[in-house]
Amino acid sequence: MEDTGHNHMDKTTSRDEELAEQRRLAGEYVPAYDGLLVSQKLSTELIHEEYATGDIAYQVKTSNLSKDFGFFRKIRGDGNCGFRAFYFGLLEVLIELGDENLLKAQKTRFNEVNGLLVRSGVDSIIWEDWVEATNRLLNLLISTKHKEERLEALFTAFNNEDDMSDEHSRELLTHLRFLISYHIKENPEQYKHFVPDGSIDAYCSSLETVSAEMDEVSLTAAHNMLSSAAGINIEVLYLDRSIGNSVTRHKWEPEKEKVRGVITMLFRPGHYDLAYPRENAPS
């Protein structure tokens, strides 16, 4: 029994060390809000408090941020934060709209873009589990009848750490990551002017590694593929040292005139969280 206890301790320690290493690699300090991959909605006052003794530019901007955006969700910064924020944010907005048909349409949209995986020539044994993870989640959300329960199911799926691992949510995020990469590869003309040295190949091989973060090119691709047609807009709030008293806001317009909802992502250099506007906030 002593051995078992010892091994367990070793495992825990190594897992902790691993997480510490991931955080170090993410190049940022992740406050221990609640240890989740996607946190509950938290007051943006917490962000302001983070900078209480920090840079004055951040103090001013975070103070103003909380006036217009009351809440945020802390997204785990493990290299997947941008993908995690976008994917969670998209489904959350669709659920909040309260129309089951929007979820069904999103499932159809995913199944259409899954053709990218088939056409990539990569053996289906590699990606079928990722496709299945997305289908399983959307089926669950569709079959769940109440908004609150759907949100709970979404929250659980994205925080799934089955078997000491977050494999389920990793499958979801890897699905999104490869859809983005293959979408860019199939549409080089649309993206080549925005990637380093105009090299789609180099950009995508990097995007397909486990440590590549989402950037504006991949966010744009995700939007073009999955949210624009759904009438969902993306807005990014840039919190950095640039001139001004407020975060810099940038919107990706949807393809349809009618905007049904907005995914608001809070960007700090190297990291994405989700933010939620106050009802009376200017849009």
Partner: peptide, 16 residues
Amino acid sequence: MASNRARRMRKEIADI
């Protein structure tokens, strides 16, 4: 979900 890993490994081994 750990079974996905086992399933993929069995397929990879068969492929080799």
